[in-house]
C-alpha cells in the first residue's frame, strides 16, 4: 500500500519536518527509508552502495526540505528525484574511477535463512542483469514502480513525464524483461503477492 494514500497526514508531517521537528523527521525517515533503499538497490545492484547512498539521500533531504513546495510535486516524487540524482551522481563518479558496480555478492538481510537468501539473491541478480539491457527511462520506471512502490501518477511526477507516457514505458519494460526471462532458466525468488 502506498504511503501516499494518506495525503493529508503526510502533508502535516512534511510541513512539521520543514520546521525541523524531530518526530516528523523520524517519521518521514521510517516511512521512506525502505523504499529509497530498495529503489537505489534496484538501480545500483549493490547493497553496500544502496546503504551509503540512501543515507546520503536523507542528508540531502535535510538540506533541501525547507525549500520543498507542495504545488510542484508530491513529497514522494520530490524525494525520489533526489534519490535519482544521487544514483546518477554516483554512477558518474564510478565511471570516472573506472569502477562498475558489481552485482550483489551477499545480501545482509537478517530475517532470512540461507536457502531463502540464495534464492532471493538469484532473483535480484537475474532482474538486475536483465534490466541492464533496458533504456534508462525503462529502468527508472521499473525502479520507481516496483522497488520504490510509487503509483503511476507519482512516477510520472518524479520523472517529469505524463502518466500515459509512463504507462507505455512500463509496458515496454515489462514486455522486454519477459522476453529475456523466458530465454533463461527460471530462477525466480520469493513471491510478494
Amino acid at each position: 500500500m502506498s504511503p501516499s494514500a494518506d495525503v493529508d497526514g503526510e502533508r502535516a508531517v512534511v510541513d512539521a519536518a520543514k520546521t525541523g521537528d524531530e518526530a516528523a523527521l523520524t517519521e518521514l525517515y521510517r516511512l521512506y527509508y525502505p523504499r529509497v533503499y530498495r529503489y537505489i538497490l534496484a538501480r545500483m545492484g549493490n547493497p553496500y552502495d544502496a546503504e551509503d547512498l540512501t543515507e546520503e539521500v536523507f542528508l540531502r533531504v535535510l538540506d533541501a526540505i525547507e525549500r520543498f513546495q507542495w504545488r510542484e510535486a508530491p513529497f514522494s516524487a520530490w524525494l525520489f528525484r533526489i534519490a535519482h540524482n544521487a544514483v546518477i551522481s554516483q554512477r558518474r563518479k564510478e565511471g570516472a574511477r573506472g569502477r562498475s558496480s558489481p552485482l550483489i555478492e551477499a545480501l545482509p538481510v537478517d530475517s532470512q535463512g540461507p536457502e531463502e537468501m540464495v534464492e532471493n539473491r538469484l532473483a535480484i541478480n537475474e532482474i538486475m542483469k536483465a534490466a541492464e539491457t533496458l533504456p534508462e527511462a525503462q529502468r527508472r520506471v521499473i525502479g520507481l514502480r516496483f522497488a520504490a512502490g510509487l503509483t503511476v501518477a507519482e512516477t510520472a511526477r518524479a520523472m517529469g513525464k505524463g502518466e500515459g507516457n509512463v504507462k507505455v514505458i512500463q509496458h515496454k519494460a515489462i514486455a522486454k524483461l519477459r522476453e529475456i526471462f523466458v530465454q533463461r532458466p527460471a530462477v525466480y525468488g520469493k513471491r510478494r503477492v
Partner: peptide, 13 residues
C-alpha cells in the same frame, strides 16, 4: 513477469 520483478526487488534494508 511483473509479479516476479516485484518479488525480486522486495528487499528490506
Amino acid at each position: 513477469t511483473a509479479e516476479e520483478i516485484a518479488a525480486g526487488l522486495d528487499e528490506a534494508p
